[in-house]
Design a protein around this nucleic acid. Structure first.
Lengths: 181, 181
DNA sequence: CTTACCATGTAAGGCGTTACATGATTCA
DNA sequence: TGAATCATGTAACGCCTTACATGGTAAG
């Protein structure tokens, strides 16, 4: 029972909340999970097939809509698999920030270039923060309706706090570099 | 000149500071760059050979020490390559936190289990923070000796600020989950 | 009628880790 | 003399992204 593939666990996790199509799973990744996880169609669709083959999810054709939709539902076995994975200790938390990497080697570039990278980073964060704040508000309103919201809120709070810290750091870093020329 | 492999750039960046062996490069990764980048021997050694073949670094046998050391030095071309890469916009900043993933699916686990993951995360951060604080102190003392220190300090400050925020979040998250039971 | 979005999937290739394989040196 | 650390490298394999390929539907 070792070697749980992360992609399987993420998908099963999303399916544990609601039944979804592959396309919708991708959308969740690009919005809700965006700031701490990601995956492409090229890994999602094969993984879904695999989950069905292993009996962890079932696939049914959508007859109601006019679109060619494949809807996936988690099975009892899938839920057990997910639960088992959740009991295991965390294997890896990984941060790969190219921005920090380029900054680290800043002595090979001009101050202007370093500032340029910091500002680009700042803008990206400033653009994403409102979505998290919006999610926070919605979740706080509906906190009593669904326990799942409680956990979702915790991750959103993580995102908000770290993003605000990033913005603080950007300001300080810009000052530091500008002052010294 | 597109498609710069990150592993090449990190190595060249480290070599831009000083000449190093593959083993030392790995050590830098595991200490200095640890909280925002990583790589294994299996990618470092082949990359070094590749850099030499492309004329971006030179390899010389160490004759002084008794060990079988291969010392790598960056060339003019390597430095130009690095500089070029530094001018390009950041392609990807990525965070993959399994801790957040497991927390997100918390409705499938007990509160105790969720707390367990948060506490493990907290301990890991508490253990690593002192190294960053130590680096900060040393860098502040030697700030005037080398411009490279300035940039190194910026990344360390990023690490310290975000780690402190993580610890704050851990405390709040634990309270939040404990209160509601 | 055309643009944006919904929707599914495959193939090739890149990138990187893990595990393996080997051996020297230093220190207790 | 045994453990820890220094030191280099390869092979197999896994995982994932990118690019490709295709087509339906909703809205303006």
């Amino acid at each position: 029972m070792a070697n749980e593939k992360k992609i399987d666990c993420v998908i099963l996790g999303l399916l544990s909340h609601e039944e979804l199509t592959g396309y919708e799973i991708k959308k969740r990744m690009d919005t809700t999970l965006k700031y701490f996880w990601s995956a492409s169609y090229g890994s999602i669709y094969p993984a879904l097939n695999d989950l069905v083959n292993r009996g962890l999810a079932i696939k049914k054709e959508d007859t109601e809509s006019k679109r060619n939709k494949q809807i996936y539902t988690i099975t009892k076995e899938g839920r057990d698999y997910l639960k088992k994975w959740l009991t295991l200790p965390i294997e890896k938390d990984e941060l790969r920030y190219e921005t920090l990497l380029k900054l680290f080697f800043g002595n090979e570039q001009s101050v202007e270039q370093a500032l340029f990278h910091i500002e680009a980073f700042e803008k990206k964060i400033e653009k994403e923060l409102p979505y998290l704040l919006n999610a926070e508000e919605t979740l706080n309103k509906n906190l009593n309706n669904d326990i799942a919201h409680k956990y979702y809120l915790l991750t959103v709070e993580f995102g908000i706090k770290t993003y605000r810290t990033y913005l603080e750091w950007c300001k300080e870093a810009k000052d530091f570099l500008s002052d010294e020329g």
